[in-house]
Simulated assay, not measured.
Amino acid sequence: MAPPSDHVKISCDASFCLNPLSVSAAAILRDSEGRIIGGHASLVNARSVEVAEALSIRMGLETAVKAGLHHIIVESDNFNLINRIVSKVQSFWETVALEEDILDLSSSFSSCSFVYIPRCCNQVADWVAKNFRSSACPRDWPTSVPPGLRNLL
Results as ranks from 00 to 15, higher is better:
132 F>R: 02
149 L>C: 10
56 S>K: 02
95 T>V: 15
111 S>T: 09
74 V>L: 00
8 V>I: 15
136 A>K: 14
52 A>M: 01
71 H>G: 07
67 A>N: 09
117 I>V: 15
33 E>N: 15
69 L>C: 01
31 D>A: 04
84 R>P: 03
89 V>Q: 15
121 C>H: 12
111 S>D: 11
128 V>G: 08
43 L>A: 11
13 D>A: 10
121 C>G: 15
42 S>D: 14
23 V>L: 04
82 I>T: 03
120 C>V: 15
4 P>Y: 09
33 E>F: 12
49 V>R: 09
54 A>M: 06
112 C>N: 06
143 T>F: 14
133 R>H: 08
111 S>I: 07
61 L>C: 06
29 L>P: 01
5 S>C: 10
75 E>V: 04
139 R>S: 13
144 S>Y: 13
33 E>L: 13
90 Q>H: 14
85 I>M: 03
6 D>R: 10
48 S>K: 06
69 L>A: 06
122 N>K: 07
11 S>H: 05
18 L>M: 13
43 L>E: 09
137 C>L: 05
112 C>W: 03
45 N>R: 13
37 I>S: 02
38 G>T: 06
99 E>Q: 14
20 P>C: 02
2 A>I: 14
75 E>Y: 01
54 A>V: 00
32 S>A: 15
101 D>S: 12
46 A>D: 00
49 V>P: 07
111 S>Y: 13
10 I>S: 04
89 V>Y: 12
112 C>P: 00
100 E>A: 13
148 G>D: 12
83 N>M: 11
26 A>L: 08
93 W>A: 15
33 E>A: 15
124 V>S: 05
86 V>P: 07
127 W>M: 12
76 S>D: 05
7 H>N: 13
98 L>D: 04
77 D>M: 02
106 S>D: 08
50 E>P: 03
93 W>C: 14
62 E>F: 10
124 V>L: 10
61 L>S: 07
88 K>H: 11
97 A>C: 13
144 S>N: 14
115 V>N: 11
151 N>P: 05
55 L>F: 04
115 V>D: 09
134 S>I: 11
77 D>A: 04
75 E>P: 00
77 D>G: 05
131 N>T: 08
145 V>Q: 09
88 K>P: 00
52 A>H: 04
153 L>Y: 10
23 V>Y: 01
42 S>K: 14
84 R>T: 10
144 S>P: 09
84 R>E: 13
60 G>H: 00
139 R>C: 12
23 V>Q: 00
102 I>M: 04
122 N>L: 09
64 A>S: 06
69 L>R: 06
49 V>D: 07
70 H>Y: 14
98 L>A: 05
111 S>H: 09
73 I>D: 02
146 P>F: 07
67 A>F: 11
133 R>I: 06
29 L>Y: 07
17 C>H: 14
5 S>T: 12
99 E>M: 12
13 D>C: 01
74 V>H: 02
97 A>R: 10
98 L>N: 04
114 F>D: 01
69 L>G: 00
3 P>M: 05
71 H>V: 02
112 C>L: 05
6 D>C: 10
83 N>S: 15
86 V>Y: 08
99 E>L: 14
